[in-house]
């Protein structure tokens, strides 16, 4: 157990590499896993507990859907709480996304309306989740492919206000920001300026793919050059932060992920 993640690079650990990381303990600053893959215990949890003794651990949830108008599912929250208690991670994060309405789930990271009424609802959900977990959550910005037509503010303003109201932190996904800049013409400079520097607890890097002229956040590629450039800009503004390499589709050999993490470590070193 570690009090907080180190400002170094880590990797998102997925099933194909569980065995290799257990056997070889590669040099990594920290690891992150998807919380839902370790719910309820059993063999996956036992393995995660072993890993948590060797690396600072981050739990990254994809299923709570705190940006839904309906409150988060109490059972899902209780299962997350049990996992947090069993692994005592250095960080716990969720996405600022919609994933359910009226009891139906999209199991995706959907955009939400950025309005004052939505902010009231989401701040309540975040406070409730943090109370249940007994700790601070980091909330991640999204890649979006469409937007609510009557937004009253931008995603970064919404996040900043959530930080102010609930004390949560921000997980800044630089690839998502780049994808939104290209697809939705989000103003990157204004986005970064709106975020409170103290709240940035973690950074994500990943690769996108392109379909029908849209950039899709597929986590299926090496980090692209313009995303590395934006990452350096982010570090220049916020200083070194724990940084994750995420890869979820067409997962390459572990050595490729470790090399990408080393590149992020070099960027972090340059701003220390």
């Amino acid at each position: 157990m570690t009090a907080s993640l180190p400002s170094r690079a880590g990797i998102g650990l997925r099933a194909p590499h569980y065995r290799a990381v257990l056997d070889d303990s590669p040099e990594l600053g920290w690891i992150e896993v998807h919380s839902e893959n370790f719910f309820d215990g059993g063999a996956p949890l036992a393995m995660l507990q072993t890993l948590a003794e060797r690396y600072p651990l981050s739990l990254h949830g994809v299923g709570l859907g705190l940006g839904s108008f309906d409150p988060p599912d109490a059972e899902h929250l209780a299962r997350l709480k049990a996992l947090v208690d069993a692994t005592r991670p250095a960080a716990v994060s969720e996405h600022l996304c919609l994933n359910h309405a009226g009891g139906r789930y999209a199991n995706d990271l959907l955009p939400l309306p950025y309005t004052a009424a939505m902010l009231d609802a989401v701040a309540g959900h975040v406070a409730r989740a943090q109370d249940a977990l007994g700790r601070r959550l980091l909330l991640e910005n999204l890649s979006s492919y469409l937007a609510y037509p009557a937004n009253e503010m931008g995603e970064a303003d919404f996040l900043a206000e959530l930080v102010r109201r609930t004390g949560c932190g921000v997980l800044l996904d630089v690839n998502n920001l780049y994808v939104n800049q290209r697809n939705l013409h989000v103003d990157v400079a204004a986005f970064l300026a709106a975020l409170p520097a103290d709240a940035i607890g973690e950074i994500h890097l990943a690769g996108f793919s392109e379909r029908d002229g849209l950039l899709i956040d597929t986590h299926s590629q090496p980090v692209h050059a313009p995303v590395w450039a934006l990452y350096e800009q982010v570090l220049a503004r916020f200083g070194p932060r724990p940084t994750l390499i995420e890869w979820d589709i067409d997962i390459p050999p572990l050595s490729t992920l470790v090399a990408e993490a080393a590149r992020a470590d070099a960027c972090l070193e340059a701003v220390r």
């Binding site: 839902e36 893959n37 719910f39 994809v62 299923g63 709570l64 859907g65 599912d73 899902h76 299962r79 994933n99 359910h100 009891g103 139906r104 789930y105 999209a106 199991n107």
Partner: peptide, 9 residues
């Protein structure tokens, strides 16, 4: 069959 949980499992 819609999905009824945030946990895909």
């Amino acid at each position: 069959t819609p999905s009824r949980s945030g946990d895909l499992h």
